[in-house]
Design a binder for these strands. Structure first.
Lengths: 234, 234
DNA sequence: TTCAAATGTGTATTTTTAACACATTATTAC
DNA sequence: GTAATAATGTGTTAAAAATACACATTTGAA
C-alpha cells in the first residue's frame, strides 16, 4: 500500500520502483501469397528454443515510444515504411523469456509481400503459412494466435486487407484473401455484391494479365473514402 | 541491428539491454449506479496534475504477472475477488509520466458497486460518472476512453454486463445499464425479446421490492451456459 | 476448333432488425 | 376505497440484411 501511494501521488520514482526488466515489442507481420496467409518469422537461435520459429521483435529503447519501436522493426526487417500496424496485447508472464524478465507488446501488421522480396534473401527471414505453424519459440504461438484472432475480427468491419494486396488486384484475389484469413469459403456473387455496395473499390477499367484463364477486372482500394491507412474506420 | 541479434538469438540480456523503466498497470474499474456508468477514481496528488482524477494503478512487481498485478489492485481497492478483468492496451509514450519512463498496461474491470461500499469511506476513492469526466491526470483520459470503447464493443456480443449488476436484477435495470454503456435509447419490447431469445437469463419467479411502481420480475444471469465469468465467449 | 477454367451477373428465400400501442398491475395520493 | 400515476408485460408488421443458388460469357491452352 505504501508503494501504491508513493507511486500514485508523490514525485519521483525511487530506486526500488525499478527492477531489472526489459521491454520489447514483437511484430506479427502478415502477408498473403499463393492463396495463403503467411507470417514473417525467423529461426530462433537461443538454446532453449533452438530451431523453432520466432516472431520479429526487439527491445524498446529508453527514449522510444512503443509504436515507434514497432515501426522501426518493420522498417528494418521489411524495408517498408507505410504499413498498417495495430497494437494487440501485452504479454508479461514472469517466466516467458529465459533471459530474464521481458515484457513484450505485440503488434500485428499487414504488408504486401511482393513489395520487399529483395530484402529477404540474405537473411534468415521466412514467410511461413500461418496454418502450418504449430509450435514457436517463447510464447510466440500464443502471440500469433492473439494477433490472428484480432485480424479476423478486424477485417469484418474495417477495410484493412488492402494492405496485404498489391495496388491493383482482382476480386478473386480479394475474395481468396478473405477466405484465407477467415478460413471459410465465401459465395462469389454475394461477396462481389457486398463489396460494390460498400463502395470500397474503384474500378480501374483494366484487366489482369498473365493469368491462365479469362482475366478479371482490376480494382484499387478507394482510399480517398477512408483517409489514412492506419486510422480506424468507424 | 546488433542489438536485435543479441536479443533475439543469444543467451542472457546484457546490462545495457535494461534501462530505467518502470512498468505499471492501470485499472479502469467500471460500476453502475443511479442509471449511470461510473468509474472508480482517486484524487491525484502529484504537483503536475494536482486535484485531477486519476485511475487506480500500481507498479508491477518483479515477480508478478501483469494479470496478477491488476487483480491485486482490484482486490486492494475494492476488496473484490471474483471480478471481470480484461487487458485493453499498453501506453508507452516516452513523456507520459512526469516521474520517469513508466509504461502502463490498461485493464478494464466490471464490478457491482453495492458489493463493496464499505471499503470506500476511509479512502479518497470516488465513483465518478463516466460521462462527466472531461479531464484526468497523466494520459488517463485516453486510457479511460480506450477502455470505454472496448467495453462498448464487448457488451454487444458478450454477456459481461452482469458483472455490473447485483445477482438478482430486473429487465429494466439491465436495459438501463445497456443504455448507459452505449449511450443510446433502446426499445423495450425488442430488448426483452432479444434477451429471452439469447437465453442469457434465468427467471427467478420473484418480484422486485421497494420500487415505487409495479414491480418487475427478477432474473439472474444464466452462468451455467457460459462457464467462467472471465472467459471469453464465442 | 474445342475444351477447360474462371469471370460476370440477378432473383428468391430466409433471417435479422426496427418500428410501433395498449391492456395490466402495483403504488401512491386523495 | 377510489382514482391517478407509473412502470410492467406482451405481438405484429415492415424493412433491411444475409444467404442460397445457376447459367451464359470470355479467354487461354491444347
Amino acid at each position: 500500500m505504501k508503494q501504491i501511494s508513493r507511486f500514485s501521488h508523490f514525485g519521483e520514482l525511487s530506486d526500488k520502483d525499478y527492477f531489472r526488466i526489459a521491454l520489447s515489442v514483437d511484430c506479427v507481420i502478415f502477408g498473403f501469397e499463393d492463396g495463403e496467409l503467411k507470417v514473417l518469422v525467423i529461426k530462433c537461435n537461443i538454446k532453449e528454443y533452438k530451431g523453432l520459429w520466432s516472431l520479429l521483435g526487439d527491445l524498446v529503447k529508453p527514449d522510444e515510444d512503443l509504436d515507434t519501436a514497432s515501426y522501426r522493426i518493420l522498417k528494418e526487417r521489411t524495408g517498408l515504411d507505410d504499413v498498417y500496424l495495430e497494437q494487440v496485447q501485452t504479454f508479461g508472464q514472469v517466466g516467458r523469456h529465459p533471459a530474464g524478465r521481458v515484457i513484450t507488446t505485440a503488434y500485428f501488421s499487414l504488408v504486401n509481400i511482393k513489395d520487399h522480396q529483395l530484402k529477404l534473401s540474405d537473411n534468415e527471414l521466412h514467410w511461413h503459412p500461418v496454418n502450418e505453424i504449430a509450435e514457436m519459440a517463447f510464447d510466440h504461438m500464443e502471440i500469433l494466435k492473439g494477433c490472428l484472432e484480432r485480424l479476423r475480427e478486424k477485417v469484418i468491419d474495417h477495410p484493412v486487407v488492402f494492405n496485404l494486396l498489391p495496388k491493383k488486384f482482382s476480386l478473386r484475389e480479394l475474395q481468396s484473401l478473405y477466405e484465407a484469413i477467415l478460413n471459410i469459403k465465401l459465395d462469389r456473387r454475394n461477396f462481389r455484391k457486398k463489396f460494390f455496395m460498400m463502395d470500397w473499390l474503384i474500378d480501374l477499367e483494366e484487366l489482369e494479365e498473365d493469368v491462365p484463364h479469362r482475366p478479371g477486372k482490376l480494382y484499387k482500394f478507394n482510399q480517398a473514402k477512408f483517409g489514412r491507412k492506419t486510422k480506424k474506420v468507424s
